[in-house]
Amino acid sequence: MKAPSFAYSKPQSLAEAFELAERPGAKVLAGGQSLIPSLNMRLSAPELLVDITGIGSLRGISVEQGVVRIGALTTHAQIERSAEIRKHAPLLAQAVTHIAHPAIRNRGTLGGSIALADPAAEYPACLVALKATIVVAGRDGERLVAADNFFKGLFEVDLRPGELVVAAEFPAILKEERSVFLELARRHGDYAIIGLAAHKGAETRFVYCGAGATPVFAKRASAAKDLDTGKKALEKDLNPPADLYNSSATKLHLAKVLLTRAWNTLTTSH
């Protein structure tokens, strides 16, 4: 299919972008790895595409004072190749290799993934596990939203009209902390049947992707003292929706398998 016709603009500054993004029927275009297919399948028909890839301030990875900041336009490939991410955010470094394929990773962005909030996507679960802050900005200035609150529902996030995701920030990993990302996909690069972002710091967080409308923080399992209690608790934490090939029960079973594997990794010393 061919995309329906639309207007296209490529602002060079954030101020210009905010103004364009507020227009009725406007949609923000970053890496385009989800939006362009949805246009070509005529699943969405925006009147105006606001291509923000010309705004340089949205790019880049920095680590300052123990905080990792990843600009919204940073591509998956840049995250994958970043030595700083490997050192300070091993959870993301592990997760990014599961995202699609090299051609998609070369264009797809962190900000795009967060703003779209596909419930099966890897980054949202990682950011919740890392207690990240999502930096959003609009005409009225910047807002900081905890990842816990940012993902509100199925493809629904805390972004107001005209606002963009600017960056994600989270604490760099400490020496005594552990992270692990696991997912089960029938083919490498597919959205996972179920995935698990696990981080053990002062608090332990098991956060699942593909397990609900949003990333699902398994609070009871995360608080469990031992694995068996954790697995039992998972039944209360999760009620994963069935997909084409897997029932809810299968997904819950697989979630327990991932919990077991992550638990063993987190509790094994380096």
């Binding site: 049947i193 090939y245 029932s247 079973h253």
Partner: peptide, 13 residues
């Protein structure tokens, strides 16, 4: 032979 079909055969789900 999807994972689910194999798990069912194994009576895991």
């Amino acid at each position: 032979f999807t994972p689910e079909r194999i798990l069912k055969a194994l009576k895991k789900v």
